[in-house]
Simulated assay, not measured.
Amino acid sequence: MDRSLKCFTNCLLCTSGELVAQDLYFSTEQGTITPNYYYRQEGVERIDLDGKIVAPGFLDLQTNGMKGVHFTQLALGNAPGDDERRLEEVSKMEVCHGVTGWWATVPTVDKDRWKQIVPVLKPRTFVSGADLLGAHVEGPYLNASKKGAHSAAYLQEPAKISPQVLYGDDNLIDAIKLITLAPELPGSTALVDQLQEEYPHIVISLGHSAATYEEGLAVLQLGARALTHVFNAMLPLHHRNPGLAGLMGTGKCYYSIIPDGIHLHPSLVTLCMRTDPRKCIFITDSVELAGLPDGVHGGHGQIAQRQLKQGNKATIEGTDTLIGGCCTLDECIRNAVAFTGCNLAEAVQCATENIADMMSESKRGRLEPGRRADFAILDHEGVVLETWIGGSKVWARM
């Protein structure tokens, strides 16, 4: 008899875009999902979910921060343990929204800051918080004409500075898991070749770019595999010159979108989800204003100007320039259902399975034996009721 064995029963599982009525067995000792033949064992603790929905723990692929913490503010000679405390603050907010794993995005900063910030973002775990899975460096190899809120003064061309000099070889090996770059810049093709050869674990995504469809396709064929917040900070989709956005329909790349109702019109969320349901990915692109009150807030290492938060909209004060989002990932999922009419499991897939596939996370993102027992328990409206990590409940809605 295995006293660590538990079973969710009387529930619906989010599996490949469908809601399936099925029990789910997992081990708290191993922290993994187990095969269903364990139903024959005695002593299994059965947890009746009364028809609720079990989703894989959500994966937050692109967050610049939240709850007052922006990742450009790390490694500034703060008090010992202060950076750890800030990251833990983010991890604890994430679990309140069903997130069990997240990648910290570092937007473009001064070239001397990369080697200071990125090491702080090596994968790590937190007690009762979501796991930090590494860093996403969004810059500085971006096109100034599509910089969005990034500082033009800090942008670099790949031909002029190597990733080893910029980020550091150790960080490319240990911390960096995703790089967003503009494929049309001088040296970008050689950079993609180099990254694929020397750091094959790093996923290359195309964004903040004025690249043509043909330029983007050429880099995908070299090994790049994603588009970063498609439609935002890239050429618009034109019927004769489709740009990077036209690559969505090729089946050759994943593509992230921000379904907050601000960055994309709801009709485009529908277009993105229907184009390739297994390649569409939801991101929040959240900034540190997420979780803070509305109003004017100060700048930071990415943005020197003051910032205005109005609901989920965050802009540079006095402009219409969006600086990211304030939406949470569970809210993005609910928005997608409302915008597109898809079922809840289809929306959940874009925040779990698709991201795990893109990032080659073989132990997360799916409800199948051998994967981590990381779960978000939802009601039928997509509201997160409980979050479980490694087979243990770490948060529950009061």
Rank of each mutant, 00 (worst) to 15 (best):
10 N>Q: 04
21 A>H: 08
24 L>W: 00
25 Y>G: 00
26 F>M: 03
37 Y>M: 10
44 V>P: 06
47 I>T: 02
47 I>L: 09
65 G>N: 06
68 G>M: 05
68 G>C: 02
72 T>G: 09
79 A>T: 13
84 E>A: 14
89 E>S: 13
96 C>H: 12
102 W>P: 02
102 W>D: 07
103 W>S: 09
108 T>P: 01
108 T>K: 04
118 V>W: 12
118 V>H: 11
123 P>H: 00
123 P>D: 03
124 R>S: 05
129 G>H: 05
134 G>R: 04
139 G>R: 02
142 L>D: 03
144 A>I: 12
146 K>S: 05
150 H>I: 07
157 E>L: 14
158 P>Y: 10
167 Y>C: 09
168 G>M: 06
170 D>M: 11
170 D>N: 15
180 T>H: 08
198 E>W: 12
201 H>C: 08
206 L>N: 01
207 G>I: 07
208 H>Q: 02
210 A>L: 14
218 A>C: 11
219 V>P: 10
229 H>R: 06
229 H>F: 00
249 G>C: 10
255 Y>I: 07
257 I>H: 00
258 I>S: 01
260 D>S: 06
277 P>M: 07
285 D>L: 02
286 S>L: 01
287 V>C: 06
288 E>M: 15
289 L>V: 00
292 L>G: 00
297 H>P: 03
298 G>W: 09
299 G>C: 00
312 N>K: 15
315 T>D: 01
323 I>M: 07
323 I>E: 04
324 G>P: 08
327 C>R: 13
337 V>W: 06
339 F>I: 10
340 T>M: 05
348 V>P: 00
362 S>M: 12
366 R>K: 15
368 E>P: 08
371 R>D: 03
373 A>F: 01
388 W>G: 05
388 W>Y: 14
389 I>Q: 13
396 A>Q: 13
397 R>A: 15
398 M>D: 15
